[in-house]
Every structure is written in structure tokens, then in C-alpha cells.
């Protein structure tokens, strides 16, 4: 995989250290990671991406709301949701709305890789 062909993954999480960690992991996997502190920041940047890796619970728009808005706007960018919460129903709801994967924090790198592969295939 050449650098130019490396897919761009948007990482949206209000927790900076996790955002940095995820971007670092993506880089080690050969992806290009770009971090955003909130869904609003991502929308405002309007740069687009090959895949969105977003936290579920965030101040402002939640991960699910971001996905819904993108879909409404006709954007089909695959979305992987992450959540640190254990509330029941979140996972099912997100999958029903079209999320590729829902990852429960903390998750294994392999889980993320598998999700990314599915998202980008």
C-alpha cells in the first residue's frame, strides 16, 4: 500500500488522548488518521474521508446523530462507532441505522482492523 493510496480515516472523539492514540494506531496500520474533537468540527472542516471512526457520546452532536445527518445529506462514508458505555440497545440501534461496526471501549487493535477492512472493502 503506497502512501498516496493510504485511506484517510477521520477520528472523532472529545477525549484528546484517545484521539491521538487512535490516530497513532491507524498510522501504524498504514492508514492516514485525522482527528476531530467533535462531530461539529468534522462537519465544519468539510474535507471528507474514506471512513469515520467516531465516539458515540460527545457534547453536541453524538456519533449516531452525525451518521444520521451524513445519511440525510446523501453522504455514504462508512461509520464505525465507539462507545465506553454499557447501555443496552445502543449497539443494535447503531447497526440498524447503518453503522459498519460498534466497538466497545476498550477494544483490541485486531477488532478495529477487522472493522476498517469491512468498511473500506
Amino acid at each position: 500500500m503506497s502512501q498516496a493510496a493510504a485511506p484517510l480515516i477521520a477520528v472523532i472523539d472529545d477525549d484528546e488522548s484517545l484521539r491521538l492514540a487512535l490516530a497513532g494506531l491507524l498510522r501504524s496500520l498504514g492508514y492516514k488518521g485525522r482527528g476531530y474533537g467533535s462531530a461539529e468540527d468534522y462537519l465544519a472542516a468539510a474535507t471528507g474521508s474514506d471512513c469515520i471512526l467516531t465516539d458515540f457520546h460527545m457534547p453536541g452532536l453524538s456519533g449516531l446523530e452525525l451518521m444520521q445527518q451524513l445519511r440525510r445529506d446523501g453522504c455514504r462514508t462508512p461509520v464505525i462507532l465507539m462507545t465506553a458505555r454499557t447501555e443496552a440497545g445502543i449497539r443494535e440501534r447503531a447497526l440498524a441505522e447503518g453503522a459498519i461496526c460498534v466497538l466497545a471501549k476498550p477494544f483490541e487493535a485486531e477488532q478495529l482492523i477487522r472493522c476498517l477492512e469491512r468498511a473500506l472493502s
Binding site: 484517545l18 492514540a21 476498550p106
Partner: peptide, 8 residues
């Protein structure tokens, strides 16, 4: 949150 960061 920090645990996920550590694992990642």
C-alpha cells in the same frame, strides 16, 4: 476512556 487509549 484512558484504558481504551492505553490499549490502542
Amino acid at each position: 476512556q484512558p484504558l481504551a487509549a492505553i490499549a490502542t
